[in-house]
């Protein structure tokens, strides 16, 4: 199993992003790196050219690099950016919208289908493989059982060697995208006068219920899980199903966690998850749930 690093979902200053990827280049625990802005087209610390510079450095350091596209494409300008990203040609693209799938398919370039692409069954999966998909990032809300169900279907058997399965396994999960910017709203700003205030929240803004539980994280137009998803104790049960496990960059300790994941790919160590961590979706439970015992679903 490979370990990937998803795109940075938060809005970080350029220097911080560059420093982060210098450390990534030096890490032997990361195999695949996704680069790009997937949340908000206004964020302007880095442009495609900057990401390509980082991509070249990471490739020289031996990483597989992929470019991630915007998730909610609302304007013609955003589609033009998408075309530029796909046309850059050197790196595989992670399509996060069907518009990106269409453009990749038309240009005959292979692509990764991101977790926001609605692929819930074997026939849709096969359709995407025929369209050029080489890696499928399963929707975050699906379980191990759902994944195993899909992969065991006859129509998938013949094509299983044509694509990798990737699972979001660490970080706050993107759960929704809106026309509204919740970070701007939280500062009482209009979206078109947001002042790019996301930059003040390198790990998003915490949303708590009236009885004090962290329910969500606001990240611009994206709403994330309040709990940090963490499948470190489930890695040993992914073999044969999952080819790539994805860690989503956090403001601290991302590479430390990558090392822990690397060391635990075959199990061995059982981590005690924190109060604000969860693993529910994988275990066919509500996403916010946390199950300490892992033996019950052994297959």
């Amino acid at each position: 199993m490979k370990i990937s690093l998803g795109p940075i979902l938060y809005y970080w200053p350029k220097e911080k992003v560059e420093a982060f990827y210098r450390d990534v280049a030096d890490s032997s625990d990361i195999d695949v790196v996704y680069l790009g802005e997937t949340v908000c087209p206004k964020r302007s610390e880095l442009f495609l050219k900057d990401y390509l510079d980082i991509a070249h450095q990471l490739r020289e350091a031996g990483k597989q690099v992929r470019l991630s596209t915007m998730t909610l494409l609302e304007s013609p300008g955003m589609v033009r950016d998408l075309v530029r990203c796909i046309d850059s040609g050197e790196f595989m693209v992670e399509a996060n919208d069907m518009g990106a799938v269409f453009l990749a398919q038309q240009k005959g370039v292979p692509f990764v289908a991101g977790a926001a692409i609605n692929c819930y069954n074997q026939h849709t999966l096969k359709y995407l493989v025929n369209a050029g998909m080489q890696c499928w990032v399963m929707p975050v809300e699906l379980s191990r059982e759902w994944l195993a169900d899909i992969l065991s279907q006859d129509v998938v058997q013949d094509i299983r060697s044509c694509f990798d399965v990737e699972v979001f396994a660490f970080g706050h999960m993107p759960l929704a995208w809106s026309a509204r910017c919740f970070t701007a709203r939280s500062e009482n700003r209009a979206k078109d006068q947001c002042g790019l205030c996301c930059i003040n929240y390198p790990c998003g803004r915490s949303v708590t219920s009236q009885d004090g539980h962290q329910v969500f994280i606001l990240n611009g137009i994206q709403t994330q899980s309040g709990h940090r998803y963490n499948l470190i104790n489930q890695l040993q049960h992914m073999h044969g199903l999952v080819d790539v496990v994805r860690l989503s960059p956090q403001v601290e300790d991302t590479l430390l966690w990558a090392k822990r994941f690397r060391n635990n790919l075959n199990g061995g160590q059982n981590y005690c998850l924190g109060e604000f961590e969860s693993n529910g979706y994988w275990l066919k439970l509500p996403g916010m749930s946390r199950m300490e015992s892992v033996s019950h679903y052994e297959s």
Partner: peptide
């Protein structure tokens, strides 16, 4: 309020 078909808030809380 969310882009329909891309909202998992409900399964996050309830499955």
């Amino acid at each position: 309020i969310m882009a329909e078909g891309r909202c998992y808030l409900s399964s996050y809380m309830t499955g």
